[in-house]
């Protein structure tokens, strides 16, 4: 009886984890050692060529650029979220609740639609430029998109709540009494901030950084739509290997490379005291 219900509870998830997570990843790992036949087919072999190819200067540059864009996006998200969450946490509890819900509302609508909203605002004959022109602030239209700026706006916008929520939850956990104690002990605002507030909110920042940095590497559609197809991120590179250059083994190798990087970042996160369950529980 006991075993039967154990089986009922656990077999779906075990099957799921093996069929839909473990197997696909092992298959990608397998693919990454194969050779591409130029027609999109696969020649069975055991080769490291796909991994060697990643270290070609051309592709390394793509990786590096992607990583720096994702990194800058993460930093911008921290710079916006941190003060935002602290200011919000100073409000009354009810107001806090409403404000945090309001942060979530835009993200319940379609992310592409919101990206399109940015296109309407940012393009050459868009809303921003029309306003700037009619106010005679500048003579020529400003290029807000089809460049790095556009990609940053798109990425920061799409990923910001993934930073705000964990940071807010760590900021709101700070015990007000600790802050008072710190002030009573003669610490000035600066010291209270660096010695008390920052260390206590570090796990939240790490959590948010992980949830911003990793997706930012893969979001090919933002680079496509707001970067004008000029900016190739790792996501675009993988997509191209699968849908354009039809070199699946190389695409698989880059994916495995990304999995390894993710794994290392997660290790780092856990080492800094992060809880895995916090990553998925917004």
């Amino acid at each position: 009886m006991k075993n039967k219900s154990k089986f009922l509870y656990l077999s779906p998830v075990v099957i799921y984890a093996i069929v839909l997570i473990l197997f696909p990843i092992l298959y990608i790992l397998f693919l990454s050692f194969q050779t591409n036949d130029n027609y999109g087919g696969i020649i069975y072999s055991l080769t490291l060529n796909n991994y060697i190819k990643i270290f070609d200067i051309v592709y390394l540059r793509v990786l590096f650029k992607s990583a720096s864009i994702a990194f800058i996006t993460t930093v911008i998200c921290i710079l916006i979220s941190y003060p935002f969450c602290i200011f919000i946490s100073e409000k009354k509890p009810n107001v806090q609740k409403i404000l945090i819900t309001l942060v979530m509302v835009p993200f319940l609508t379609n992310s592409l639609i919101r990206t399109y909203g940015w296109i309407v605002l940012l393009r050459k004959e868009g809303v921003f430029n029309s306003i700037l022109q009619s106010l005679n602030i500048c003579d020529g239209p400003i290029s807000f998109m089809y460049n790095n700026l556009g990609v940053f706006i798109g990425l920061v916008y799409t990923l910001l709540p993934f930073m705000i929520l964990p940071v807010y939850s760590s900021v709101s956990k700070i015990d007000k009494k600790v802050l008072e104690a710190s002030e009573d002990l003669g610490a000035n605002a600066y010291h209270t901030f660096t010695k008390v507030i920052i260390p206590q909110t570090l796990p939240g920042i790490f959590n948010g950084s992980l949830m911003v940095f990793i997706p930012a590497i893969g979001m090919f559609f933002i680079a496509d739509l707001l970067g004008g197809g000029k900016i190739m991120l790792v996501g675009n590179l993988i997509k191209n290997q699968f849908l354009v250059s039809r070199n699946w083994p190389f695409g698989a190798a880059i994916s495995i490379f990304l999995i390894v990087i993710t794994f290392l970042l997660v290790k780092l996160y856990k080492k800094s005291g992060g809880n895995m369950d916090d990553l998925g529980g917004f």
Binding site: I21, I25, I238, F242, W248
Partner: peptide
């Protein structure tokens, strides 16, 4: 091991999960 596997879809870039599923 199963517990660890369950975190994979949460942390890996979506595109990696997408192409692995497509390949399968």
């Amino acid at each position: 091991f199963i517990n660890k596997l369950l975190y994979v879809p949460v942390v890996i870039p979506e595109i990696v999960l997408g192409i692995s599923l497509l390949s399968v």
